[in-house]
Design a protein around this nucleic acid. Structure first.
Lengths: 246, 246
DNA sequence: CGCGGCTTTGATGTTCATCAAGTAAAGTGG
DNA sequence: CCACTTTACTTGATGAACATCAAAGCCGCG
């Protein structure tokens, strides 16, 4: 009975208990982004309805049309939100990073996902059962206001981004996404492009070939350095200017 | 003292009292769009914080950057939401119609308007003081959920619209807006275009000249009839097909 | 080691913006 | 109310921006 595997099992229970305490939402580094207004009982409700999932690069987290029954929350990694049209072509709505509430916009308006979600890097997601989440919203008006706030901000940013994209031409669009990755996602001037050239095109509504040509042009102009997927931004100032002037 | 003008003044007070009773939010035709969950006391709060305004075609209702201190609600007419860039060029985000909550997306995320709002036709707007509105949200969780729902829907629709626009070319974009006006706004196949050709261009990110050319082409193809501002849609089927296939 | 997906470059054609120039309509001030 | 000014509308010509097609090298993976 008391063989090695059993000891390991007991040990794993101990680890799980410990990590559960540590990883309770109450102590989560992202707590203040949304859950700042909860009391201990409410943390318990959320925490008990919570599961963590890890997804590998390429894995689909949610599929367009799938029923929504949880609130999702990114802890680590990178994902894309996208739609596939009838011809099988993808369009990417946004790329999201840790701290983002990747399905908040959909939760209250639809029973089903309007976009698919897939991991671009190894991604850690918190999944909170929707009934528990809505329960807390209903009983804590400060929290409800906070959610309202968040939804508004997300929607504002998404609309703003799409709106400004519409008036830019290709160089401005590419500059924009490079700056997004360097400044918002990786906070470094050198990073590994987490998407293919085709995906960049899907994000800014341009063809793969023209994305490649624009990358090459930026390299020739000394604005970036390119080594396969690894991009180094050499001239932030000029890149920002291209982003601004379209 | 008791001359004609004074009698008219007394009479006008009487009319105002009467119309105020009739136009109480509780009896508003649009009540169920958002205010379905309120009790009598809450209607009173909203109603007491409410003012009605009429704007003529061309009048600016709110200016980008202006402080938000009310919840706005369209009762009659047509407005555009737009942004003016540094070169003085306008871009139109959306055209809104009665029943729309024209600033709901901005209320909870920003202290200031991110877009300007202007009347395209004679427009009747209900203006509810923001403190009263938020008060009711805080104390009625069903109402809060309802607002969450509305915000999500509006944001969904706006994003969806912008997103689908990005992949269309000019004919699809023009078809799209013609269908929007015919089916959603006027519910007739013949209507007076409420915007200039330039404004159509500002809405779909195209030049005035190309909007005109596209209108002419649709006329030559027998899809629409054109008489200055008056447009008649002759072939819905083909127009819808152009909208769908981009 | 061969297959499929990603990347790259060049050639060609389409779509659209820009420029120019003129007519029609709608305000505006005397 | 009329002359005047501005704004809206329209068409054509030209060129820039971008998509499409074609071909080939590269890389990872079964």
């Amino acid at each position: 009975m008391y063989d090695i595997s059993h000891i390991l099992y007991i040990y794993s229970l101990f680890i799980m208990r410990t990590s559960k305490d540590i990883l309770n939402c109450k102590y989560c580094v992202y707590r203040n982004l949304l859950f700042g207004e909860l009391d201990d009982k409410e943390y318990e409700i959320i925490n008990n309805a919570r599961t963590e999932y890890v997804f590998k690069r390429g894995e689909v987290i949610k599929k367009e049309g799938e029923r929504i029954n949880s609130f999702l929350y990114m802890r680590k990694g990178l994902v894309k939100l996208y739609k596939t049209d009838r011809r099988g072509k993808d369009q990417i709505l946004s790329i999201n990073k840790p701290g983002d509430f990747i399905n908040l916009l959909n939760i209250f308006s639809n029973a089903a996902y309007k976009y698919s979600i897939a991991a671009l890097e190894e991604t850690l997601v918190c999944d909170v059962r929707l009934d528990a989440f809505i329960d807390v919203v209903k009983n804590n008006s400060d929290f409800a206001l906070s959610v309202l706030n968040r939804i508004s901000k997300i929607s504002d940013e998404t609309i703003e981004r799409r709106f400004s994209l519409a008036q830019k031409q290709i160089k401005g669009r590419v500059a924009n996404i490079l700056l997004f990755l360097a400044e918002d996602v990786y906070r470094k001037n050198k990073f590994r492009l987490p998407v293919t050239r085709r995906e960049v095109g899907e994000l800014v509504s341009m063809t793969t070939e023209n994305i490649i040509r624009t990358f090459s042009e930026f390299r020739k102009d000394g604005i970036i350095d390119l080594d396969g997927k690894v991009i180094t931004i050499l001239d932030f100032k000029r890149l920002k200017n291209i982003d601004k002037t379209g």
